[in-house]
């Protein structure tokens, strides 16, 4: 039972990440591969505030979102100058740079040693120390993020995003300043990733830079490509599939380290196969 709860918590965290990235990649058509950086900023801000000041988790979560928002605004501004392949390459760059900062700003992040002993969240004297309660918290946040995404994508703002994806020139000819729309969605998406980061930090109670490497961003991208681009349900389904998959491999009887690599092989093959046979993913509404 404890095991199922653990898996469910991971699925909710990655579903939040998938939902957030889908806003940028699926709905706006910008191939961003830097989500793990924002996920990491959220996690680190929460971890540092909780361990050094003993602040309330929910306050730390909001401060984390604010700091991530500021960082993503700067990054999004630079990235907005690029197009297509170069956008992806530039976003790789920011992921590597932020990762290097986690690794090297040792006075703040303790570098490769990581930050241990992050407390679980508590609210009005109630601590979410039991995993069941933590799962409830993550699901509440996931539902919140899901409905915000649904609201955004269903609104007129969301329709402008989709038209940027389809034909940026045309929509700007109608007088929309596409730069502001792209920046806004990039920042919103980064702040959602930061929520996932805060949850992750306080769930695992330990973070180090290796959780926020470039391949983590690629994994998040794989989630939404599998689930389906530009579909909010797709992001959740994709997260569930890609988290459950290695667990199934483990049950089949592979040893742990082989199972970890098998997971990589399988999701690499899934990416290739999807691009070849079903570029819109399981239930996607947009193909790259």
């Amino acid at each position: 039972m404890e095991y199922i709860i653990h898996i469910s918590i991971l699925i909710s965290i990655y579903a939040i990440l998938g939902l957030s990235l889908n806003l940028v990649v699926g709905f706006t058509g910008l191939l961003s591969v830097t989500q793990a950086a924002f996920y990491g900023i959220g996690a680190y801000v929460t971890a540092i505030l909780l361990t050094s000041t003993g602040m309330n988790f929910f306050l730390a979560l909001i401060i984390g979102m604010a700091i991530t928002g500021v960082c993503s605004l700067a990054i999004g501004f630079v990235l907005s100058k690029f197009k297509d392949d170069y956008y992806a390459l530039g976003s790789f760059g920011f992921n590597v740079i932020i990762y290097s900062i986690f690794l090297n700003w040792q006075s703040l992040t303790r570098g490769p040693l990581g930050i241990p002993g992050i407390p679980r969240p508590s609210l009005f004297g109630f601590t979410f120390s039991e995993n069941v309660w933590f799962l409830a918290l993550s699901i509440v946040l996931l539902i919140l993020v899901y409905f915000i995404c649904r609201f955004i994508t269903g609104s007129s703002f969301g329709r402008v995003l989709k038209s940027i994806r389809e034909d940026e020139g045309a929509i700007s000819a109608f007088g929309y300043r596409t730069l502001w729309y792209k920046l806004a969605i990039f920042v919103i998406s980064a702040m959602m990733a930061s929520i996932a980061g805060s949850l992750f930090a306080s769930y695992i109670t330990f973070i180090d830079p290796s959780s926020f490497v470039l391949s983590e961003s690629i994994f998040i991208l794989a989630i939404i490509i599998l689930g389906g681009l530009a579909n909010n349900k797709g992001a959740v389904i994709g997260a569930a599939c890609l988290i459950l998959l290695p667990e199934i491999l483990r049950f089949v009887g592979f040893p742990d380290d082989i199972a970890a690599q098998m997971r990589q092989v399988v999701y690499g093959v899934i990416l290739v196969a999807l691009m070849l046979y079903r570029p819109q993913g399981l239930i996607g509404e947009y193909r790259l």
């Binding site: 297509d84 794989a222 490509i225 690499g268 070849l276 790259l288």
Partner: peptide
């Protein structure tokens, strides 16, 4: 972008 994602898959696998 499709080729880029496919290439990412090849790399990972």
């Amino acid at each position: 972008m499709v080729l880029l994602v496919a290439a990412l898959g090849v790399l990972t696998a």
